[in-house]
Design a protein around this nucleic acid. Structure first.
Lengths: 349, 349
DNA sequence: TTGAAAGCGCTACCAA
DNA sequence: TTGGTAGCGCTTTCAA
């Protein structure tokens, strides 16, 4: 038995318009006593307006599209990164009365058809590459908050429309720099770099960390050695194992990969915690439980999701103009035990 | 620039009714040539009907509500279990043209208001306790597939309405039995049981595993010892550490908890892989990477999500009648290294 | 086989 | 400050 605005109006002895005005908080158009009366009745029936009808007549649907981009058919929700972002978004959405419809997209057409279908107020997009961004940007009008979409610096300036496009990133360059500097500070000089085989959607992230790595080397006066960069196409850790004597520390682009590496080396019986130091990124749940516990750069993905949702709802409600189109979250160094002092520790310069 | 059914009709020189009939596959009501013509135009404009309008007039919205139950304000999406289920659901939903709207609910009223708002065709509910189930069952009409809601056996029979209520469970009893029997088979006799502090929503799951544990003991002729059951209220692993000499093996209700336990014992320097065997449940991503790799009962949560979605869409489309109201997935023993032979291994009796 | 028209529940506009 | 009403885009009678 569903209750409509009409019935509320009838019971209150007013018109639907008046009820509608109360619902939509247009207080200045309704007298105080009517507001009270109507609100009481709404309360009594636990009434909430039909979203489909509302969305049909106006553009406000309270619906946020959560766009996960992937070229494959299905998205890896089990990736802890994705899921933490989701947690942040969901929490905030509920607080602010938005609904989130998840959609895994592989093309702009996907988005367009979804958009027409549901009249989304806005989108939060995760894992969009620069090329795909351009396509989206050209074809979708609704406001979009992009998480971890790295554009070239100039492009941000060029866009300059903080009411339609916003970006939430981690400062991956800084993270890479911090991680590597930490290693250098600990007396390491031969520092390797290990990353997953490049996935287009996280190119920007990895790229930035890599730049940070190189910069730290430069600052530390350590020559960059191409042979110390491992981007195992087949996730083959063997290459690293074979070159283990060429470095004393390694920067790994994800905690999970670090865990895999340690596991691999342990299996081969060539892991010596006191000889090889490992630092990575994320601070996933297992990081502290690993043996040894991972020294890592914590990237608070939950906050990232929250921030994305807050940003989007601010845009939609035009509460406040966002000063910056690009919001950058800083990583945080978490020192645990996977990094030990290097051969040069304590030595001067 | 949005395109409506009206414009399609105009261009085709027919009425909107005819177009509607084509869209809704009522072929017997339209002539063949018109069908072709209209389909061509639809194709041309890449038209899809407005879901809000459709939902407004009829009940079919292609919208599935994903209900996560929790008493707390926000749901732990980062829990790997949740997220794997989500992955399965999402994959299937996309395949079958459904949209999923995630909603974290804390009360039946939540569901009702969401339901009125959006006209969901059906729900998938995760983590609903028996008590909450009864409440939902009484108040929600739409079909619901429950994942991991454990009812008393009689209740299932009583309900007997496979078109409205379906249940997807893992056979947790069997899982508990298998795990414990495996330990016994390995020559262990003093076997402890460790679980998270009881959360109401997974009572059923833990309870069942616990029953399986007790049954295995019984079959193995081992007396059940209450003191060997640890349900640390404060997740205080200390209690276990203090009683480590009283057992040689332990059944842990989740991989993650097992990882925590091992980490804790290692920290205290009292973990001896060859003296204490650990078996747990889930086979999370980290299980194989742990040191030692976890022997565990694999629970395929992705499949569970998929199965839930398939089941729901079958109900909605009345394609085939589901024979069983309760579908039970079996766990699978994955032998790795956290379990070693016990003191009685190879001995007779 | 086709189409006209009613109406789903709501908001926006305009008139009172 | 209020209310009447058009109309959002669609499906569904019912009549032609």
């Amino acid at each position: 038995m569903k209750i409509t605005i009409k019935q509320i109006a009838q019971e209150a002895g007013v018109s639907v318009t008046t009820v509608s005005n109360v619902i939509n908080k247009k207080a200045h158009r309704v007298s105080k006593d009517k507001i009270e009366l109507i609100e009481k009745i709404i309360e009594k029936y636990n009434y909430t307006p039909n979203m489909n009808a509302r969305a049909l007549v106006q553009s406000s649907s309270r619906l946020i599209g959560l766009l996960y981009y992937s070229e494959a058919e299905s998205f890896r929700f089990s990736d802890p990164f994705v899921t933490e972002v989701l947690e942040g978004i969901e929490r905030c959405a509920k607080e602010r009365g938005y609904f989130t419809l998840i959609h895994n997209v592989t093309s702009v057409e996907d988005i367009q058809s979804v958009q027409r279908n549901w009249k989304f107020e806005g989108f939060i997009a995760v894992g969009v590459s620069e090329a795909f961004f351009e396509e989206i940007n050209a074809k979708i009008d609704a406001p979009i908050v992009f998480i971890d979409t790295h554009l070239s610096p100039l492009r941000y300036v060029e866009l300059n429309e903080p009411d339609r496009r916003m970006f939430i990133n981690t400062d991956d360059y800084q993270a890479g720099l911090t991680a590597t500097s930490f290693l250098i500070g600990k007396g390491h000089e031969q520092i390797a770099f290990l990353t997953y085989p490049f996935q287009p959607e996280c190119m920007g992230v990895i790229q930035s960390r890599f730049q940070g790595y190189k910069e730290a080397l430069k600052i530390g006066g350590i020559p960059y050695d191409e042979d110390l960069v491992f981007t195992n196409e087949k996730q083959d850790l063997g290459n690293i194992a074979a070159n283990l004597d060429r470095f004393t520390a390694i920067v790994v682009t994800a905690d999970f990969l670090a865990v895999e590496l340690i596991h691999y080396l342990k299996e081969k019986n060539i892991y010596d915690q006191n000889r090889i130091s490992i630092i990575s990124f994320d601070d996933i749940r297992y990081a502290r439980l690993n043996d040894p516990p991972l020294t890592t750069i914590r990237l608070d993905q939950v906050s990232k999701g929250e921030l994305a949702m807050i940003t989007l709802s601010n845009i939609l409600e035009k509460k406040e103009y966002e000063a910056d189109q690009l919001k950058i979250l800083m990583g945080e160094l978490v020192v645990r035990k996977s990094v030990v002092d290097g051969p040069n520790f304590g030595k001067i310069g």
